[in-house]
Design a protein around this nucleic acid. Structure first.
Lengths: 154, 154
DNA sequence: GCAGATAATTGAGAATGTCAATAGTATTTT
DNA sequence: AAAATACTATTGACATTCTCAATTATCTGC
């Protein structure tokens, strides 16, 4: 991972910060690892982490508008258009225009969509078992609580 | 965030999984929030999270080869080429070919690079204070330990 | 009813990610 | 020691994703 002290120029002393202790970096790498694993598991369903997230939201009993989805997933609204387009082209979701606000379109999973969502959820859970089973249930809950604080800052 | 039960088609019952409990999703969102904050803080130094990471690694007293950097940051080697090119064009790092393995190039920060790295580190720390100060030192350590387990699976 | 905000959409351009091919150097095999 | 194999950095092509600005339809407050 690195060469010996003797071989490096004298200019390269003194560390600015250790990336190992950088919360930013650790979050980014952990997310990358986790998403890569999820994508592998989701490929069998023609989904990726993103489209799966949208499908999961659409499979809820309180489906969200595209704006809601964009905010929740921190995506540009135009990206949501593309994701919903794709899911819709596979008949996994439908755009239902909200009677209360006819500008808004609520994204609702079809019954096929919900079936796929359930299977995909199970698949990712299975794939992540190895990664997540390092944690006890209590630790896992703790970790998720921390992450929620970071993911949804007040 | 969502419409009432009464307004949604009958097909949309039964949740597949709650994204709120999805470690994947929480990691991705937390990382996105964190990186966005870091990027805002780093803009003043002409850096982004990526280039900052490379510069930080180059500022260590055990600098890494581009391959090492690619592995550590989970990047394609060609992306590292571009990142180092850019840092080098600003005279923040140098490519030093490793005498032990002349294929490898060790990326070493210049003294200017180390100066920038220190300032940038301080800036991101400051920017993240609000976000991270929700945690006690103990909690923070715990969180980082969890993240390390996820980021560097055995 | 009008003026200003908001939701979805489109399209453009930048930034990132992924892959295959190449040149030079190490390492392993015979 | 020559040949075969593997590895590092690099380039270039291409796909995916991000970020913005502009447009249309609709909503809200006045």
């Amino acid at each position: 991972m690195s060469i010996e002290q003797a071989d490096i120029p004298a200019t390269a002393q003194q560390s600015g910060s250790d990336l190992d202790d950088d919360l930013n970096f650790l979050l980014a790498r952990a997310a990358a690892v986790s998403i890569a694993a999820a994508n592998r598991a989701l490929r069998a369903y023609g989904l990726k982490a993103r489209s799966y997230s949208v499908l999961a939201l659409a499979s809820t009993d309180k489906p969200a508008s595209q704006k809601d989805i964009a905010d929740f997933l921190r995506l540009d609204p135009s990206q949501v258009v593309a994701l919903v387009d794709e899911l819709e082209s596979h008949a996994l979701v439908e755009r239902v225009s909200d009677p209360r606000d006819r500008r808004a379109k609520v994204v609702v999973a079809t019954s096929e969509g919900r079936k796929v969502a359930r299977a995909a959820t199970a698949a990712t859970r299975r794939a992540e078992t190895r990664l997540h089973s390092q944690f006890s249930p209590g630790e896992r809950a703790e970790l998720m609580a921390y992450l929620r604080m970071l993911a949804f800052p007040t």
